[in-house]
Each structure stands twice: as C-alpha cells, then as structure tokens.
C-alpha cells in the first residue's frame, strides 16, 4: 500500500512540474508592470491586472499577426485534411501496387527536419511570388502536417468496417454516396481531431514562418523577431497567449491523442 502512495506522490509531483510553469507565466501575464519586474517574486500574483495583457494587444502588429496565424492554421487544416484523408482512405481500403512505396515516402518525411526545408523553399517562393504570403507559409505547414493526416486518417478508416460500406452498396449507394452517408459520419470525430492536430502544428510552427515572411508575420514569427527589442511583459503575455489555444485544442482531442500517436508510430 505504501508503494501505491509513493506512486501517487510521484504522479502529483509530475503534475506540479507540468502545471507550475504555466501557472507562473499566466500569473505574469495577468499582473501589472511593477509586479512583472518585482524582486523577489512570490508564487502568487500580488495584484491581478490586465495591464500587461492589454499592453501586449496594444502593440502595433499583434492583432494582424494573430489574424495571420489563424488564417495560416486554417489553411493548413483544410489542405492537410483534403490531401491527407483521400490518401488515408486509399491506404485503408485498397491493396494496390505502390502502397508500400507510398507508406515509405510518408515515413521518410520523419527522418528529415522538415522546417529546415523552408530555406530552399524561400528562394523558390520569391521566384513564384508567394514569398511573404500566408499561402506560402500554409503550404510549408501542410508539408509538416500532411504525413500525420495520412497515417491518422488511414487508421481511422481502417477502424470503420468495410462491410458497412459494402452494405450501403448493396442497398443502392454508389461509392460516393456510401462514403458520404456511412463512412463520413462515422469518421467525423476522428477527422476533426486530425484537423485540430494540423491546426496546432501550424499555430506553433516558428522557423519556417519566420523565414518565409517579412511583413505577413504569424504570431510566433512576430514574437520571435521582436524578442530582442521588446520588454519582458510583452514577451510573457505573448508566450501565454501562444499557449492558450493549444491547451484548449489538446483538451478537445485528448480522447484521440493515443489512437493518433499509437497508429502514427506503427
């Protein structure tokens, strides 16, 4: 029984380790300026205030960066689901020559740091006229999210019995109708999780976003490039704001987290 208690203590300690830093940055984000610079600091906020956070939103370019981030993440979401789900479906439902080669291509993307590829792409994007555009960033982010989307949706479709689709065919559906009426409703929650995952990948990505933009900065890119010449309150509020949506998203897809990664690591 003592062992059980030890486990519990360790588990709680890990919770503290995960949550404390988030709590601290939240504290800073909701303090006034003097408390941000106060020394020594207490664990609890001295004074709740919106000064820091409103200062952050008041900085020129922040709103635009947020808007850009949302737009890029939304585009990434759409692209990766639209490109990934059909491929996932094909992998799940058909045996075809080349399926293994395709799987290999998808797995290969794991052996390379994809964001780094923004460097050659930046050069090419300038020639194509999509440098410093949201579309350009979204395309690179899609390359990051697509392998995931393919693997996850393939396992998702695999978990929907083929007989359901066949039953629909025998009852008068053509392929598309059977997909829309039977497979899609069943796959929807999983597809939503995949989409959210793609969104978070894009929302968090900074290297490619910074390299590929000058004025059309996403929020991480904006924060990163202004780190050196911005005061601490700005950075803390920015860091906190970056975390919030991610927290919400992870909460929403938590049920799928393990199926997502369990299959993605096959």
């Amino acid at each position: 029984m003592n062992l059980r208690r030890l486990y519990m203590v360790l588990a709680v300690l890990l919770v503290v380790w995960v949550l404390l830093p988030i709590f601290l940055i939240a504290t800073l984000a909701f303090s006034d300026r003097p408390s941000v610079f106060a020394w020594p600091k207490g664990l609890l906020p001295q004074q709740f205030s919106l000064e820091t956070i409103s200062f952050f939103f008041g900085v020129e370019g922040v709103w635009r960066a947020i808007r850009n981030s949302l737009a890029v993440a939304a585009m990434t979401l759409v692209f990766s689901v639209l490109l990934g789900a059909p491929a996932g479906y094909a992998l799940a439902r058909y045996r075809f020559a080349g399926a293994d080669a395709y799987r290999l291509l998808i797995l290969m993307t794991r052996a390379f740091p994809l964001a780094i590829l923004a460097i050659p792409l930046a050069v090419r994007f300038i020639q194509l006229g999509i440098y410093d555009t949201l579309l350009g960033v979204a395309l690179v982010h899609t390359a990051l999210a697509l392998p995931f989307a393919v693997l996850v949706t393939s396992s998702l479709f695999l978990s929907i019995p083929k007989e359901l689709e066949e039953a629909a065919w025998t009852l008068g559906c053509n392929r598309l109708q059977a997909f829309l009426r039977v497979v899609l409703p069943l796959a929807l929650p999983g597809l939503a999780a995949t989409a959210i995952f793609a969104f978070v990948i894009s929302w968090n990505e900074v290297f490619a976003a910074t390299l590929l933009t000058l004025r059309e900065r996403t929020l991480p890119a904006f924060l990163l490039t202004s780190l050196n010449d911005s005061p601490l309150p700005f950075r803390f509020a920015g860091g906190f704001f970056l975390i919030v949506p991610a927290l919400v998203f992870i909460f929403v897809i938590r049920r799928y987290l393990f199926t997502l990664w369990g299959i993605a690591s096959r």
Binding site: P161, E163, E166, A167, T170, L171, V182, L186
Partner: peptide, 13 residues
C-alpha cells in the same frame, strides 16, 4: 439484391 452480413453491418450512426 439485398445482403445480410455475418457481422450484420448495421450502421452504428
């Protein structure tokens, strides 16, 4: 035709 499948394939949704 109509078919009854071994695992029934009743649409769960």
């Amino acid at each position: 035709i109509a078919m009854v499948f071994q695992n029934y394939a009743v649409f769960p949704h």
